[in-house]
Amino acid sequence: MAAVLPSLDELPRQNASQVKNRWGDVVRQVQKSGSVAVTNHSTVEMVLLTAATYNQLVEDAQALKAREQSVLDELARRFDERLGVLQQPGAAGRAADLFAAKGRLGRRPKAGDSF
């Protein structure tokens, strides 16, 4: 299940001095809201997350990577299959015949099994 996280603009904010001086309050706020944006001169420098949220992000990233690898493996398999056809004996001659035909058919096409 993908972690649903708010955008940076929607996060509660704490400046770096507050984080340093009132760590306990910041931890409670992170546990309550799930994450807190830490600012330095009004610019978000980092986001503090709960350990559960971090673990969910790691799992989501790993699942995405596995899915991408699966898609790449399937594409590589299909490519190798097609390349194998092109490397068969006589494939170059068939390709040359196809280009020489210039779109003309050698015989009349059939319109299905019952034709």
Rank of each mutant, 00 (worst) to 15 (best):
K102D: 09
G34R: 00
D97H: 11
P6T: 00
V19C: 07
R82V: 14
Q69T: 05
G90P: 02
G106A: 15
A96D: 15
A63F: 06
G34H: 02
P109C: 00
L72I: 09
E81A: 10
E81V: 09
V4E: 06
D80M: 07
V38N: 04
L64H: 15
E74K: 15
G90Y: 03
A76I: 05
P109H: 01
F115N: 06
E74S: 15
R82H: 13
L5E: 03
Q29L: 14
G24Q: 08
L75G: 14
L98W: 15
F115H: 08
R67A: 09
N15V: 00
S42M: 03
P6H: 02
E68Y: 15
L105E: 14
P12S: 10
A3R: 00
V44E: 00
A96K: 14
F79R: 11
R82M: 13
G34P: 02
E45T: 09
L75Q: 15
V27M: 05
K32I: 08
V4D: 06
D25E: 12
G106Q: 15
Q31N: 15
A95Q: 13
H41K: 06
L8M: 06
A61T: 11
K20W: 07
A2R: 12
P6Q: 04
G106W: 14
P6R: 02
A92E: 05
Q88L: 10
R108M: 09
G34C: 03
K20R: 13
S35M: 12
M1N: 08
A76W: 07
R67G: 05
S17N: 08
A96M: 13
K110N: 10
D9F: 00
V19Y: 04
A76T: 07
V47P: 00
E74F: 10
N15S: 01
G103Q: 03
S7P: 05
L64I: 13
D73T: 04
S17L: 10
K20S: 12
V26E: 05
G24A: 10
V85M: 10
V27E: 03
V71D: 04
T50D: 06
L48F: 01
A66I: 11
L83F: 13
T53R: 08
D113K: 07
V26G: 06
K20L: 14
R13P: 00
L8Q: 01
S35V: 09
S17K: 09
K32Q: 11
D9Q: 02
T50C: 03
S114M: 12
T53N: 14
R77S: 03
V58I: 13
D73Q: 08
D113R: 08
A76L: 10
A95H: 14
G84L: 05
R104C: 07
G106D: 15
A95V: 14
V27C: 03
Q56T: 06
W23E: 01
Q31T: 12
V36L: 00
N40V: 06
E74M: 12
R13Q: 01
P12Q: 09
D60T: 02
G103F: 04
A2E: 12
D113S: 04
A51Y: 04
M1C: 09
L75A: 15
R107A: 11
A3Q: 01
S70R: 11
